[in-house]
């Protein structure tokens, strides 16, 4: 009895593993678009930095489009100063959102305008509410999305520009959308970016491609807000270490000069 139960369990587990791997094996390898980004790729891995105007455009897209469904829980409003905004601008941006605070002296929770020290306000109270409003799908938090997906920036750009008509005979489920770059090609998110979905404050032409690369830059920043400080420190550290190592090599040669080996 025990043995047969175990056996059934093992077979079931094995079938699940085989099924899962078979499903993956059938999914073809998707080539992501290879874009040039100001902060990564080639020598930009060392010297690259963010374009402030692009980050600000990205914030505008997040505010007007993405933030309807996606949270940015790890980012604080005060962090926006890094995008080139003044203290007053950050305060104004934060103040446009409401957060719950309390309890006050009467024991009541109350709403107040957000402060620069608050985290970005999420569009939904909790995951269940997010699913309920999105056909059962959970829009992921975007704070770390650029580090949490293979391909990073190229992946985000790919997803945002990869919406297509489903090929003939593709079994697209009800309420799902066809995306060239999404694993399995069925994505719950409807195409979020289209030409002129945003009117840029700085007058840049809002083509889909422009929008996608701007929001990608913004999300690369939210994932790695330390990126520029890290690289500039890295360059200084490398220069120091290179110089120091040359000195050490000279010292070693001097010390060993009298040894036959």
């Amino acid at each position: 009895m025990m043995r047969s139960t175990m056996r059934t369990l093992i077979i079931a587990a094995a079938a699940m593993v085989v099924g899962a791997t078979a499903a993956q094996a059938s999914g073809e390898k998707i080539e992501l678009p290879a874009r040039n980004w100001s902060w990564q790729g080639g020598w930009n891995n060392v010297f690259g930095s963010f374009d402030r105007a692009q980050l600000q455009r990205g914030l505008q897209i997040y505010t007007e489009v993405c933030s309807g469904c996606h949270s940015l829980k790890l980012v604080t409003y005060r962090n926006l100063a890094a995008l080139g905004y003044s203290e007053d601008e950050v305060k104004a941006y934060a103040g446009a959102h409401e957060v719950q605070d309390g309890p006050n002296d009467d024991g009541e929770m109350f709403m107040r305008p957000a402060l620069p020290s608050d985290r970005f306000v999420s569009p939904f109270a909790n995951d269940q509410a997010a699913r309920a409003s999105n056909n059962g799908a959970l829009p992921p938090d975007l704070s770390l999305i650029a580090k949490a997906r293979k391909g990073g920036a190229n992946y985000i750009f790919g997803i945002l520009t990869g919406y297509e008509e489903a090929p003939e005979g593709f079994p697209l489920s009800e309420g799902m959308n066809y995306n060239h770059y999404f694993a399995g090609h069925q994505i719950a998110m409807a195409q979020p970016l289209m030409d002129d979905v945003v009117t840029y404050a700085d007058g840049t032409a809002a083509t889909t491609e422009q929008l996608a690369s701007d929001i990608t830059a913004f999300l690369a920043w939210t994932a790695e807000p330390e990126l520029e400080e890290r690289k500039s420190m890295g360059v200084r550290v490398m220069i120091f270490l290179a110089f120091f190592t040359i000195l050490l090599i000279a010292v070693k040669r001097r010390v060993w000069a009298d040894v036959k080996h």
């Binding site: 270490l241 120091f244 190592t245 050490l248 090599i249 010292v251 070693k252 010390v255 060993w256």
Partner: peptide, 9 residues
């Protein structure tokens, strides 16, 4: 001295 060279690299 020799270990320091390795350390630098």
């Amino acid at each position: 001295a020799k270990d320091s060279v390795g350390l630098g690299v």
